[in-house]
Simulated scan of single mutants.
Amino acid sequence: MGRQWKQCQTSFFLGSKITADGDCCHEIKRRLLLGRKVMTNLDSILKCRDITLPTKVRLAKAMAFPVVMHGCESWTVKKAKC
């Protein structure tokens, strides 16, 4: 016969937590914290005077931005949160 499916409250898709109501605020905050952690780990490199500013910018773009933006395709931002 047919299978009965249960509706779950949360699920994970591509490493992102998706809730039944479509609220992604917790996921966005988690990604921002992970990006902040990456930037903290790069702190010694970013404070080094021997490395040029363009190189530091490229490092941030290559290492921090992908961490923050991973899974953003599945985020839904409501008007009230904007």
Rank of each mutant, 00 (worst) to 15 (best):
M1G: 15
G2P: 11
R3D: 15
Q4K: 14
K6C: 04
Q7N: 11
Q9K: 14
T10P: 03
T10S: 11
T10L: 09
F13I: 04
G15Y: 15
G15F: 05
S16W: 05
K17N: 07
K17R: 13
I18L: 15
I18C: 12
T19G: 07
D21C: 13
D21H: 03
C24H: 02
C24A: 04
C24E: 09
C25L: 12
C25T: 12
I28E: 01
K29D: 14
K29C: 08
R30C: 06
R30D: 04
R31V: 12
R31S: 00
R31E: 12
R31Q: 04
L32R: 10
L32C: 12
L33W: 03
L34P: 01
G35T: 00
R36Y: 06
R36V: 03
R36L: 11
K37R: 06
M39C: 13
N41V: 04
N41S: 07
L42V: 01
L42F: 09
L42R: 02
D43C: 10
S44W: 12
L46K: 08
R49P: 01
D50Y: 10
I51K: 02
T52A: 14
P54N: 00
K56R: 04
V57K: 03
R58V: 00
A60S: 02
K61S: 07
K61I: 04
A62V: 06
A64D: 08
F65W: 07
V67M: 03
G71Y: 04
C72F: 05
S74V: 08
W75S: 02
T76S: 06
T76Y: 02
V77I: 13
A80Y: 00
C82L: 13
